[in-house]
Amino acid sequence: MYDAPASEQKVTQNTTKIAAHKVQVFYGDTHAIKDVDVQIEDKTVTAFIGPSGCGKSTFLRCLNRMNDTIDICRVEGDILLDGEDIYDAKVDPVQLRAKVGMVFQKPNPFPKSIYDNIAYGPRIHGLAKNKADLDEIVEKSLRRGAIWDEVKDRLHAPGTGLSGGQQQRLCIARAVATEPEVLLMDEPCSALDPIATGQVEELIDELRENYSVVIVTHSMQQAARVSQKTAFFHLGNLVEYGETGQIFTNPVDKRTESYITGRIG
C-alpha cells in the first residue's frame, strides 16, 4: 500500500474491508495481474483507473470470484474479506457473492418484471420471511437504487422495457437487495448517456453510507467525482494507490502522471 500522509485522517476513520496481498492472475499463459497489494476500506468509494487491458476489471472480478466462471483463469495470492481468505477451499463462492455484490458494464436486467428482478437475490438467499417482507425489501432496494419513484406504478412491467440509465439503476438496486457488504461496479456508466451517468454517480455517492464501493472506470473525471481513494493500474501492476485528490493533483509515480495528463493510455 502506498502511504500518503495527507490521507491519514480518513484512513483512521474507516476500517479495512478487503485486503489483497501479492495477488497474481493468469489467463492460460498470460500473466494478467502481477503482485497486487491493496487495502480497500469500508464505507468508501474506491476507484480503479488505468488504460484498457491494464487488469483493473480482472482484479475487480477476483474480489467476488467471478473469474471462477472462466475455465482458464487462475488466481494466486491472498484476498481477505474481513480477515477471511475468500479463496480458501472451504469458501462457497455463492455465499461470498451474496456479501460482495456486483454491477456490470452493460445493464443486464433479467427478462422478468421489475419486481422479480429485485426479488431474485432475496429469494435465492432466503432473506424474506414472507410476501410482505419481500415487498418491503423490494421497495427499500428500489429506493436505495434511486429509481423507486420512476417504477413504483409498474413493478410488474418487464425490466427490459426501461431506459438504459433506469436499467442500470435497477441493476444497482438488484445488487443492493441482497444486502451485500461490498459493491463492485465494472464501468457502470460506460453504456449510459451523460444524464443517466450523473444520476448513477449521485447514487454511488449515496451508497457510500452503507457499503464499501469499488468502481472501475475509464473516465478520470468520474473517478475524481465519486471516489475517495483511487488505484492506478498499468500493464497488470498496481502503480499507485492513495487519496483521490492526491493522485490527481500530485501523483508520485511518473506513469500515473503521464496517464492523467493524457500521455499514455
Binding site: K106, Y120, C171, R174
Partner: peptide, 17 residues
C-alpha cells in the same frame, strides 16, 4: 447473453438457480 448469467452469479446464485 453471458451478461445475464454474470448478473445472476454476481448476486450469489448457483449455476442451477
Amino acid at each position: 447473453p453471458q451478461s445475464m448469467r454474470d448478473g445472476s452469479y454476481g448476486l450469489g446464485a448457483t449455476k442451477s438457480e
